[in-house]
Nucleic acid binder design. Sequence first.
DNA 1: AACTTCTCGAGATTTCAGTC
DNA 2: GACTGAAATCTCGAGAAGTT
Length: 263
Amino acid sequence: MINTVKQLMDAFHQQKTTLPYVTLKSDGSYAGWVSDFRFRFHGQKDNLRLDLNHENDRFLLYVLAVVWSRSGPWENSAFFVAHLKFNKLDNPLLWLKKEFVRQQRESRLTDAAAILQNIESPSSRKKISFRADIFNSIAILATRWTEIEKSLADCAASGDYIPFVYLLRNIDGLGTNGKKMMIKIPLILREFRCQQIYSNIPGEYCCVPDNRVKVAAKALSDMKLSSAYPGLPNLLKASAQIYAVYGDLYDLPLFASNDLHTS
DNA sequence: AACTTCTCGAGATTTCAGTC
DNA sequence: GACTGAAATCTCGAGAAGTT
């Protein structure tokens, strides 16, 4: 059993190469989730990755966060982003058209099955499905796209990212049923920080205290993690607590905890 | 004492997976 | 095909804890 931070870190470092979502830089810090999806399309040499220097890839990062802000295993969001990338549906302008969005929602079942055919030995804990309620959320993301990009650039210039966090938080419809996105906002900031697109993003804003992470933290006798709900200040507080312990590995060791075995 | 913030758990929601 | 339980995430409210 993993009961302490040290036991978790030992197990994490022993088994990090076997985990399908852990990608580290040469200095040992986390390279970011989207730096390597750990699968590739047939005939391609490299694994799928997002390069946040490119606008369409930035859009896909937000899509990943929005789709992930829902019930269901995380593989659904990763393969959905792969689907958009593979079929070149990653231009935000496409998602401004109602008819396009409707068609995407209509073909979601066949699309979910089809993307797996295009990937070299795909693996998932559960069956892949594209939820019906993600498509409107992406359309909303598209309508606010230039505003979001500008806000992030403005925050980078000022060094204060709080306005960006609140902008994302206050958009109705990025979550389920017209609700808002919350818990995956740090994911977006973290990816920009990891790829050093904006190097002045504080690491304290970059840890995701999602359910997996909270459960793992609870099991550790020497780590206290306050509830990330209900407010944004609580989310940022929990994120800072994680960063204080794990630094530039962010929430990764906690996220991985459930997949680690003790010898 | 009054007010604010934090903590925790129940509830709503959507989909998967197993059973009849 | 219908039903049921499990999984995952956000919302909300009641009570605890902290502040002024």
